[in-house]
Design a protein around this nucleic acid. Structure first.
Length: 262
DNA sequence: AAATGAAGCAACCGCCTTGTT
DNA sequence: GAACAAGGCGGTTGCTTCATT
């Protein structure tokens, strides 16, 4: 017995989401919370499959998302985590608040991968590429996946240069590399990396732990930190599709702890 | 200015995992 | 324990934008 398709593909719309669709989805989730995704399109009046709605929400519309390119520190963290976890993008994304697995995956494939190759590092294994001349044992061990751990314990940062790709000359002596790595922002990242690897972030978004449209429930959520002013940049985007008339969030207009109106 | 190729990214697909009956 | 439903994940595709010729 085959698996049932998640939706009837003939009846659902595909391709890029329109502003109107985004509006409907946001409006629905803000007022009703995240319930079962299969029901969302029907209840929100969307001709999309539930899966598509979930994807659109988690990858693009979620209010706690950061926008723009990954910072140097974030890139460094992605590289470190990838060395540990491999292509488990969701696990990696869980350690970078405000970033999605899709975003990190895309960034890895389009930016980081190339930079690593340029640096003579195999992005898949984090080992030096076969044709890369190994200049010293220390360097090799610093680059290897397995020894990323030991490097960490020695207080050494993984020598990834998020900015320039191969700005670091891989043939420089170890001492120089250590010296150089001290000048990079990534060096100070190790405690953060360790902390992130040890500390489990909340399994799900706490601000989304609501299922009813009850206003008290909702304001409770909004009082949580994820809804502070720093995470409301997404609201600016609404202006692109006439959200400034409050038509969307009327039903969910609340105040956060700072008295900031949504 | 037009054509072509490369890069970036949103979205889709299909499989896997987990929860429920 | 089996069957099923739903959510989640990673790989891939294809469209759009930008750069180069």
């Amino acid at each position: 017995m085959g698996r049932q398709p998640c939706c009837d593909k003939k009846k659902v719309k595909r391709g890029p989401w329109t502003a109107e669709e985004d509006k409907k989805l946001i409006s629905f989730i803000l007022t009703h919370g995240r319930c079962c995704w299969r029901a969302v399109p029907k209840l929100a009046g969307l001709l999309r499959c539930g899966k598509s709605c979930r994807l659109r929400w988690t990858n693009y519309l979620r209010p706690d998302l950061k926008r723009g390119l990954l910072t140097a520190d974030e890139e460094q963290l992605v590289v470190d985590l990838h060395a540990k976890l491999g292509n488990r993008w969701s696990k990696i994304a869980a350690k970078l608040p405000g970033r999605t697995d899709n975003e990190i995956k895309n960034h890895w494939n389009t930016h980081i991968k190339k930079k690593l190759i340029k640096m003579g590092i195999d992005p898949a294994t984090h080992q030096p590429l076969p044709n890369t001349k190994v200049v010293s044992q220390t360097r090799t061990s610093t680059l290897s996946t397995a020894t990323t751990e030991s490097a960490k314990s020695n207080g050494m940062a993984y020598p990834f240069d998020p900015e320039g790709g191969c700005s670091r000359d891989m043939s420089v002596p170890t001492d120089s590399m250590e010296q150089s790595s001290r000048n990079t922002s990534s060096h100070g990242l190790d405690p953060l990396v360790n902390w992130l690897l040890e500390a489990e972030l909340p399994a799900d978004e706490p601000w989304l732990n609501f299922t009813s449209s009850n206003e008290d429930d909702f304001s409770g959520i909004v009082k949580q930190s994820a809804w502070d002013g720093s995470t409301t940049d997404w609201l600016l985007d609404y202006q692109d599709f006439s959200m400034d008339d409050s038509s969307l969030i009327d039903g969910a207009r609340v105040q956060n702890s700072d008295g900031l109106n949504f």
